[in-house]
């Protein structure tokens, strides 16, 4: 698998979350969470409903300001950004972190193509001399427009939406809107892409096409991906690294196989019988001890 090769080549973390906590009044939505996403990886964030996955996302993309903790993003150029200190639009513009939403947020009255052009706002804004040169008809803006349409075309083709480029985005079926939202996020030129439940509401065939799209994004652009997902077929199929949350805390972290067999994950997802509780607790304690021992050795 080529994914493995890229892993070994670029193994340093792109996103580092350290001691992240988010409190809403009396509710601790995230409690002292630390994890890393490595460059070129597809990292999945899973967990039962209400575990705080979307809250983590909103903290990473600046839509929430975390109560505590540090989120640092390292770009390919080596430039480092502390995301918890930046307003949301700067995180996309400067730190190159793009995101999608759990409930799709389309510009439904704009056409599909226009949606992708809006995503290239900052590039076009610079090219048009912050509107003034563009308004006076300088050729630089015309060239930039042509280029932006080429970029949009590239992503439309990837998302299999080229034939519907001139239709209003609100007119697309659900699955196509999901793909369009990913294409739109990619048009911002991100290094790190955060997808909030990209497979929610997709049928198995669309879900398969989504896997293809995500793999090709990673392969062709080297964009690292962090995704929240409930659909285990997607998670287990494409992710290199899985993080499991429950009640705002990390309960497991590793490759899909490791996580799949982790008793704490099974307990969190399936629940356990009353008589098994003790057993599971013991087992968990055992694991924690061994992990603690390992941690000491490092």
């Amino acid at each position: 698998m080529s994914a493995l090769e890229t892993n070994t080549m670029t193994n340093e973390p792109i996103l580092k979350v350290e001691h992240l906590s988010m409190r809403f009044g009396g509710l601790m939505a995230i409690n002292d969470l630390s994890f890393e996403a490595r460059r070129g990886d597809i990292t999945a964030l899973i967990g039962p409903n209400g575990a705080g996955k979307t809250t983590v996302f909103n903290c990473v993309t600046g839509f929430y300001k975390p109560t505590m903790g540090m989120i640092s993003m390292t770009q390919r150029s080596g430039k480092k950004f502390l995301l918890e200190r930046m307003p949301d639009f700067e995180i996309t513009r400067d730190a190159k972190v793009a995101r999608t939403f759990q409930n799709i947020r389309m510009f439904s009255g704009l056409t599909v193509l226009e949606n992708l052009l809006v995503a290239q706002h900052n590039m076009l804004m610079r090219a048009s001399g912050f509107t003034i040169l563009g308004l006076l008809g300088f050729s630089g803006y015309r060239r930039a427009t042509e280029q932006s349409i080429e970029i949009a075309k590239y992503w439309l083709e990837k998302a299999d939406l080229l034939s519907r480029a001139d239709d209003p985005a609100g007119d697309l079926p659900y699955g196509a809107q999901r793909r369009l939202e990913i294409a739109r996020a990619m048009c911002t030129g991100p290094e790190f892409l955060c997808l909030d439940e990209p497979a929610a509401g997709l049928n198995p065939r669309e879900s398969l096409a989504l896997n293809e799209l995500l793999r090709s994004i990673r392969q062709d652009t080297g964009t690292s991906i962090l995704l929240i997902e409930h659909d285990m077929s997607v998670v287990m199929e494409i992710s290199d690294h899985v993080i499991v949350l429950e009640y705002g805390q990390k309960i497991s972290d590793g490759t899909p196989e490791e996580v799949k067999n982790d008793p704490r994950v099974i307990a969190a997802y399936l629940g356990v019988e009353d008589e098994e509780v003790e057993e599971v607790i013991e087992e968990i304690e055992e694991i924690q001890e061994t992990e603690g021992g390992q941690g000491g050795k490092h």
């Binding site: 639009f89 510009f107 009255g109 704009l110 052009l117 076009l124 509107t131 563009g134």
Partner: peptide
Amino acid sequence: MPIGRAWEALREDEIACRSL
């Protein structure tokens, strides 16, 4: 112009605008 498109995008969905 990008600014005009951004206005219309703002009318459609402000949060999506910020995410872009």
